[in-house]
Protein backbone atom coordinates (compact mmCIF):
# COMPACT_ATOMS: atom_id res chain seq x y z
CA UNK A 1 0.00 0.00 0.00
CA UNK A 2 1.34 3.38 -0.88
CA UNK A 3 0.14 6.65 0.65
CA UNK A 4 -0.02 9.98 -1.12
CA UNK A 5 -0.60 13.30 0.60
CA UNK A 6 -1.50 16.57 -1.06
CA UNK A 7 0.34 19.33 0.78
CA UNK A 8 -1.02 22.81 0.26
CA UNK A 9 1.22 25.83 -0.01
CA UNK A 10 0.73 29.56 -0.15
CA UNK A 11 3.18 32.04 -1.63
CA UNK A 12 5.72 29.24 -2.24
CA UNK A 13 5.64 28.02 1.37
CA UNK A 14 3.91 24.94 2.72
CA UNK A 15 1.03 25.59 5.08
CA UNK A 16 1.21 24.25 8.60
CA UNK A 17 -1.53 21.75 7.80
CA UNK A 18 0.84 20.12 5.29
CA UNK A 19 3.03 19.00 8.20
CA UNK A 20 0.03 17.69 10.09
CA UNK A 21 -0.97 15.59 7.06
CA UNK A 22 2.62 14.33 6.82
CA UNK A 23 2.60 13.38 10.52
CA UNK A 24 -0.69 11.53 10.13
CA UNK A 25 0.33 9.71 6.96
CA UNK A 26 3.66 8.77 8.47
CA UNK A 27 1.93 7.18 11.47
CA UNK A 28 -0.14 5.01 9.11
CA UNK A 29 2.90 4.16 6.98
CA UNK A 30 4.86 3.08 10.05
CA UNK A 31 2.06 0.73 11.11
CA UNK A 32 1.77 -0.69 7.61
CA UNK A 33 5.46 -0.83 6.74
CA UNK A 34 4.83 1.39 3.73
CA UNK A 35 5.99 4.81 2.63
CA UNK A 36 4.62 8.33 2.20
CA UNK A 37 4.83 10.39 -0.97
CA UNK A 38 3.79 14.05 -1.00
CA UNK A 39 2.72 16.09 -3.98
CA UNK A 40 3.33 19.83 -3.64
CA UNK A 41 2.38 22.49 -6.18
CA UNK A 42 4.55 25.60 -6.48
CA UNK A 43 6.16 25.08 -3.07
CA UNK A 44 9.84 25.91 -2.58
CA UNK A 45 10.30 24.25 0.79
CA UNK A 46 8.75 20.82 0.12
CA UNK A 47 11.84 18.98 1.39
CA UNK A 48 10.97 20.10 4.91
CA UNK A 49 8.31 17.41 4.80
CA UNK A 50 11.15 14.96 5.48
CA UNK A 51 11.13 16.21 9.07
CA UNK A 52 7.66 14.74 9.46
CA UNK A 53 8.17 11.31 7.95
CA UNK A 54 7.70 11.89 4.21
CA UNK A 55 9.96 9.69 2.03
CA UNK A 56 9.45 11.29 -1.33
CA UNK A 57 8.18 14.61 -2.64
CA UNK A 58 6.90 15.20 -6.13
CA UNK A 59 7.14 18.90 -6.85
CA UNK A 60 5.07 20.47 -9.58
CA UNK A 61 6.06 23.97 -10.67
CA UNK A 62 4.05 25.89 -13.19
CA UNK A 63 3.07 29.55 -13.27
CA UNK A 64 -0.34 28.67 -14.66
CA UNK A 65 -1.02 27.08 -11.26
CA UNK A 66 -0.45 30.22 -9.21
CA UNK A 67 -4.20 30.74 -8.94
CA UNK A 68 -5.92 27.77 -7.39
CA UNK A 69 -8.02 25.72 -9.80
CA UNK A 70 -9.86 22.78 -8.24
CA UNK A 71 -10.09 21.06 -11.60
CA UNK A 72 -6.40 21.39 -12.44
CA UNK A 73 -5.20 20.56 -8.95
CA UNK A 74 -7.50 17.52 -8.70
CA UNK A 75 -6.17 16.29 -12.03
CA UNK A 76 -2.56 16.69 -10.89
CA UNK A 77 -3.22 14.78 -7.67
CA UNK A 78 -5.01 12.11 -9.68
CA UNK A 79 -2.01 11.74 -12.00
CA UNK A 80 0.42 11.46 -9.10
CA UNK A 81 -1.85 8.95 -7.34
CA UNK A 82 -1.89 6.81 -10.47
CA UNK A 83 1.84 7.17 -11.04
CA UNK A 84 2.58 6.13 -7.46
CA UNK A 85 -0.17 3.46 -7.40
CA UNK A 86 -1.43 5.07 -4.22
CA UNK A 87 -4.35 3.31 -2.62
CA UNK A 88 -4.78 5.98 0.03
CA UNK A 89 -4.74 9.71 -0.67
CA UNK A 90 -4.83 12.14 2.24
CA UNK A 91 -5.90 15.76 1.92
CA UNK A 92 -6.64 18.50 4.46
CA UNK A 93 -9.80 20.37 5.33
CA UNK A 94 -9.19 23.93 4.11
CA UNK A 95 -11.49 25.57 1.59
CA UNK A 96 -9.33 24.48 -1.34
CA UNK A 97 -9.17 20.88 -0.09
CA UNK A 98 -12.96 20.88 0.21
CA UNK A 99 -13.21 22.18 -3.34
CA UNK A 100 -10.95 19.59 -4.94
CA UNK A 101 -11.60 16.45 -2.84
CA UNK A 102 -15.00 15.48 -4.32
CA UNK A 103 -13.67 16.01 -7.85
CA UNK A 104 -10.68 13.80 -7.07
CA UNK A 105 -12.98 11.19 -5.54
CA UNK A 106 -15.11 11.05 -8.69
CA UNK A 107 -12.04 10.91 -10.96
CA UNK A 108 -10.21 8.20 -9.02
CA UNK A 109 -13.35 6.27 -8.18
CA UNK A 110 -12.06 6.39 -4.62
CA UNK A 111 -14.34 6.74 -1.61
CA UNK A 112 -14.03 10.08 0.13
CA UNK A 113 -14.16 10.14 3.92
CA UNK A 114 -14.36 13.77 5.09
CA UNK A 115 -13.85 15.25 8.58
CA UNK A 116 -11.62 12.42 9.77
CA UNK A 117 -10.37 12.86 13.33
CA UNK A 118 -8.29 9.77 14.14
CA UNK A 119 -5.93 7.20 12.69
CA UNK A 120 -7.80 4.42 10.86
CA UNK A 121 -9.06 1.59 13.04
CA UNK A 122 -8.21 -0.83 10.24
CA UNK A 123 -6.68 -0.46 6.79
CA UNK A 124 -8.30 -3.23 4.80
CA UNK A 125 -11.11 -2.71 4.80
CA UNK A 126 -10.46 0.92 5.65
CA UNK A 127 -12.38 1.90 8.77
CA UNK A 128 -11.93 5.39 10.09
CA UNK A 129 -13.67 7.72 12.50
CA UNK A 130 -15.13 11.02 11.30
CA UNK A 131 -17.41 13.62 12.80
CA UNK A 132 -21.08 13.83 11.83
CA UNK A 133 -24.01 16.05 12.76
CA UNK A 134 -21.60 18.98 12.99
CA UNK A 135 -19.52 17.61 15.83
CA UNK A 136 -22.52 16.36 17.77
CA UNK A 137 -21.41 12.77 17.01
CA UNK A 138 -18.78 10.54 15.43
CA UNK A 139 -19.38 7.99 12.71
CA UNK A 140 -17.12 4.99 12.16
CA UNK A 141 -17.03 4.86 8.38
CA UNK A 142 -16.20 1.74 6.41
CA UNK A 143 -14.94 2.03 2.85
CA UNK A 144 -15.99 -0.40 0.11
CA UNK A 145 -13.69 0.76 -2.67
CA UNK A 146 -10.10 -0.26 -3.39
CA UNK A 147 -8.82 3.28 -3.26
CA UNK A 148 -9.83 5.88 -0.70
CA UNK A 149 -9.35 9.54 0.15
CA UNK A 150 -9.18 10.72 3.73
CA UNK A 151 -9.82 14.41 4.39
CA UNK A 152 -8.24 15.05 7.78
CA UNK A 153 -9.83 17.62 10.09
CA UNK A 154 -7.46 20.37 11.06
CA UNK A 155 -5.76 20.08 14.44
CA UNK A 156 -7.12 16.60 15.07
CA UNK A 157 -3.77 14.81 14.91
CA UNK A 158 -1.15 17.48 15.54
CA UNK A 159 2.47 17.65 14.46
CA UNK A 160 4.79 14.72 15.12
CA UNK A 161 8.40 15.19 14.11
CA UNK A 162 10.01 12.14 12.55
CA UNK A 163 13.13 12.85 10.57
CA UNK A 164 13.29 10.78 7.40
CA UNK A 165 15.59 10.64 4.39
CA UNK A 166 13.57 12.38 1.71
CA UNK A 167 14.05 12.37 -2.03
CA UNK A 168 12.66 15.07 -4.23
CA UNK A 169 11.59 14.70 -7.81
CA UNK A 170 10.07 17.23 -10.11
CA UNK A 171 6.98 16.07 -11.89
CA UNK A 172 5.37 17.55 -15.01
CA UNK A 173 1.78 16.43 -15.22
CA UNK A 174 -0.49 17.30 -18.09
CA UNK A 175 -2.60 20.23 -17.00
CA UNK A 176 -6.21 20.23 -18.20
CA UNK A 177 -8.08 23.29 -19.46
CA UNK A 178 -10.40 24.89 -16.93
CA UNK A 179 -13.27 27.04 -18.19
CA UNK A 180 -13.38 28.68 -14.76
CA UNK A 181 -10.81 31.30 -13.93
CA UNK A 182 -10.16 33.49 -10.92
CA UNK A 183 -10.61 37.14 -11.91
CA UNK A 184 -9.89 38.73 -8.53
CA UNK A 185 -8.92 37.78 -5.02
CA UNK A 186 -9.85 39.76 -1.98
CA UNK A 187 -7.81 38.78 1.06
CA UNK A 188 -7.63 40.86 4.17
CA UNK A 189 -3.90 41.30 4.60
CA UNK A 190 -2.27 41.27 7.99
CA UNK A 191 -5.18 39.38 9.52
CA UNK A 192 -5.16 35.77 10.65
CA UNK A 193 -7.73 33.61 8.82
CA UNK A 194 -10.05 31.59 11.06
CA UNK A 195 -9.13 28.44 9.13
CA UNK A 196 -5.42 28.86 9.87
CA UNK A 197 -5.65 30.29 13.39
CA UNK A 198 -4.24 28.65 16.52
CA UNK A 199 -6.33 31.01 18.63
CA UNK A 200 -9.72 32.52 17.82
CA UNK A 201 -11.36 35.36 19.78
CA UNK A 202 -15.08 35.54 19.14
CA UNK A 203 -17.73 38.07 20.09
CA UNK A 204 -21.50 37.79 20.43
CA UNK A 205 -24.52 39.97 20.90
CA UNK A 206 -23.36 40.68 24.45
CA UNK A 207 -20.97 43.26 22.98
CA UNK A 208 -23.98 45.47 22.20
CA UNK A 209 -22.79 46.96 18.92
CA UNK A 210 -20.09 47.06 16.23
CA UNK A 211 -18.50 50.12 17.84
CA UNK A 212 -17.31 47.90 20.70
CA UNK A 213 -15.40 45.47 18.53
CA UNK A 214 -12.08 47.05 19.41
CA UNK A 215 -12.38 44.96 22.60
CA UNK A 216 -12.31 41.77 20.53
CA UNK A 217 -9.72 43.06 18.08
CA UNK A 218 -7.29 44.23 20.75
CA UNK A 219 -7.50 40.95 22.60
CA UNK A 220 -7.01 39.06 19.33
CA UNK A 221 -4.03 41.18 18.43
CA UNK A 222 -2.10 40.44 21.62
CA UNK A 223 -2.70 36.74 21.09
CA UNK A 224 -2.02 36.72 17.34
CA UNK A 225 -5.55 35.37 17.01
CA UNK A 226 -8.26 35.47 14.35
CA UNK A 227 -11.52 37.26 15.15
CA UNK A 228 -14.91 35.59 14.79
CA UNK A 229 -18.52 36.20 15.79
CA UNK A 230 -21.89 34.55 16.42
CA UNK A 231 -24.51 34.36 13.69
CA UNK A 232 -26.80 37.23 14.79
CA UNK A 233 -23.78 39.53 14.93
CA UNK A 234 -23.08 38.91 11.24
CA UNK A 235 -26.78 38.93 10.31
CA UNK A 236 -27.11 42.40 11.86
CA UNK A 237 -24.14 43.55 9.84
CA UNK A 238 -21.96 44.30 12.86
CA UNK A 239 -19.31 42.01 11.38
CA UNK A 240 -18.75 40.44 7.94
CA UNK A 241 -20.29 37.03 7.17
CA UNK A 242 -16.83 35.58 6.80
CA UNK A 243 -16.50 35.83 10.60
CA UNK A 244 -19.70 33.92 11.37
CA UNK A 245 -18.82 30.63 13.06
CA UNK A 246 -21.05 27.74 14.06
CA UNK A 247 -23.13 25.03 12.50
CA UNK A 248 -24.21 27.19 9.58
CA UNK A 249 -21.05 29.28 9.52
CA UNK A 250 -17.39 28.39 9.58
CA UNK A 251 -16.17 25.54 11.69
CA UNK A 252 -13.51 26.36 14.27
CA UNK A 253 -10.91 23.81 15.35
CA UNK A 254 -8.34 26.03 17.02
CA UNK A 255 -6.21 25.28 20.09
CA UNK A 256 -7.89 28.06 22.03
CA UNK A 257 -11.34 29.61 21.49
CA UNK A 258 -12.30 32.62 23.58
CA UNK A 259 -16.03 33.45 23.51
CA UNK A 260 -17.05 36.88 24.73
CA UNK A 261 -20.73 37.72 25.24
CA UNK A 262 -21.90 34.57 23.43
CA UNK A 263 -24.69 32.56 25.08
CA UNK A 264 -23.64 29.16 23.70
CA UNK A 265 -26.68 28.15 21.63
CA UNK A 266 -26.55 24.57 20.33
CA UNK A 267 -25.86 25.76 16.75
CA UNK A 268 -22.96 27.90 17.89
CA UNK A 269 -21.44 25.14 20.02
CA UNK A 270 -21.72 22.58 17.24
CA UNK A 271 -19.39 24.62 15.12
CA UNK A 272 -16.76 25.50 17.72
CA UNK A 273 -16.75 22.43 19.96
CA UNK A 274 -13.78 20.81 18.30
CA UNK A 275 -11.54 23.59 19.56
CA UNK A 276 -9.21 22.12 22.16
CA UNK A 277 -9.61 24.69 24.95
CA UNK A 278 -12.58 27.01 25.35
CA UNK A 279 -12.70 30.10 27.55
CA UNK A 280 -16.02 31.85 28.14
CA UNK A 281 -16.52 35.40 29.34
CA UNK A 282 -20.16 36.13 30.09
CA UNK A 283 -21.98 38.17 32.75
CA UNK A 284 -24.69 35.54 33.15
CA UNK A 285 -23.48 32.62 35.27
CA UNK A 286 -26.28 30.51 33.78
CA UNK A 287 -25.24 31.02 30.16
CA UNK A 288 -25.23 27.56 28.53
CA UNK A 289 -21.74 28.10 27.15
CA UNK A 290 -20.22 27.59 30.63
CA UNK A 291 -21.27 23.91 30.41
CA UNK A 292 -19.18 23.48 27.27
CA UNK A 293 -16.20 25.54 28.45
CA UNK A 294 -12.89 24.60 30.05
CA UNK A 295 -12.37 27.94 31.77
CA UNK A 296 -14.91 30.62 32.54
CA UNK A 297 -15.15 34.11 33.90
CA UNK A 298 -18.49 35.40 35.09
CA UNK A 299 -18.23 39.10 34.51
CA UNK A 300 -18.95 42.10 32.35
CA UNK A 301 -17.04 41.93 29.05
CA UNK A 302 -16.55 45.68 29.07
CA UNK A 303 -14.64 45.40 32.33
CA UNK A 304 -12.94 42.00 31.96
CA UNK A 305 -11.71 42.09 28.37
CA UNK A 306 -9.65 45.30 28.51
CA UNK A 307 -8.04 44.13 31.78
CA UNK A 308 -7.30 40.72 30.32
CA UNK A 309 -5.80 42.33 27.23
CA UNK A 310 -3.47 44.49 29.37
CA UNK A 311 -2.42 41.54 31.51
CA UNK A 312 -1.74 39.41 28.44
CA UNK A 313 0.41 42.20 27.01
CA UNK A 314 2.53 42.14 30.16
CA UNK A 315 2.65 38.36 30.09
CA UNK A 316 3.76 38.36 26.45
CA UNK A 317 6.41 40.97 27.13
CA UNK A 318 7.80 38.91 30.02
CA UNK A 319 7.70 35.64 28.11
CA UNK A 320 8.98 36.86 24.76
Amino acid sequence: MSILIYTESEGGKLKKTAFELASYASAIATQQGSSVTAVAINANDAEELGNYGVHKVLTVSDDSLNNFSAKKYASIIQQTAEKESASLVIVGSGSNDKFLAPILSAKLNAALVPNVVELPESISPLKVKRTAFTNKAFAMTEVDTEKAIIALSKNSFGLKENSTAVTSESFSPSIPEDASSVTSTDKVSGKVAIADAEIVVSGGRGLKGPENWNLIENLAEVLGAATACSKPVSDMGWRPHSEHVGQTGKPVASNLYIAVGISGAIQHLAGVNSSKVKVVINNDADAPFFKAADYGIVGDAFEVVPKLTEKLKEFKANNA
Binding site: S105, A110, A111, L112, V113, K127, K129, A132, N135, K136, A137, F138, A139, M140, T141, E142, V143, D144, T145, N273, V280, F290, K291, A292, A293, D294, Y295, G296, I297, V298, G299, D300, E303, V304, K307, L308, K311
Partner: peptide
Protein backbone atom coordinates in the same frame (compact mmCIF):
# COMPACT_ATOMS: atom_id res chain seq x y z
CA UNK B 1 -22.19 3.28 -2.79
CA UNK B 2 -18.62 3.84 -1.64
CA UNK B 3 -18.97 3.83 2.11
CA UNK B 4 -21.18 2.70 4.94
CA UNK B 5 -21.40 3.73 8.55
CA UNK B 6 -20.48 0.88 10.88
CA UNK B 7 -21.44 2.67 14.08
CA UNK B 8 -22.06 6.01 15.70
CA UNK B 9 -20.68 7.40 18.90
CA UNK B 10 -21.34 10.50 20.97
CA UNK B 11 -18.53 12.71 22.23
CA UNK B 12 -17.36 11.97 25.77
CA UNK B 13 -19.03 14.10 28.42
CA UNK B 14 -17.14 17.24 29.24
CA UNK B 15 -15.55 17.86 32.65
CA UNK B 16 -16.84 20.81 34.69
CA UNK B 17 -15.73 24.30 33.80
CA UNK B 18 -13.04 25.90 35.96
CA UNK B 19 -14.34 29.29 36.99
CA UNK B 20 -11.80 32.02 37.59
CA UNK B 21 -12.67 35.15 39.55
CA UNK B 22 -12.93 38.24 37.37
CA UNK B 23 -10.54 40.04 39.70
CA UNK B 24 -7.92 37.33 39.38
CA UNK B 25 -7.10 37.33 35.69
CA UNK B 26 -3.47 36.36 36.39
Amino acid sequence: SHTKIASFEKPAAKGAVKLVDKDNLD
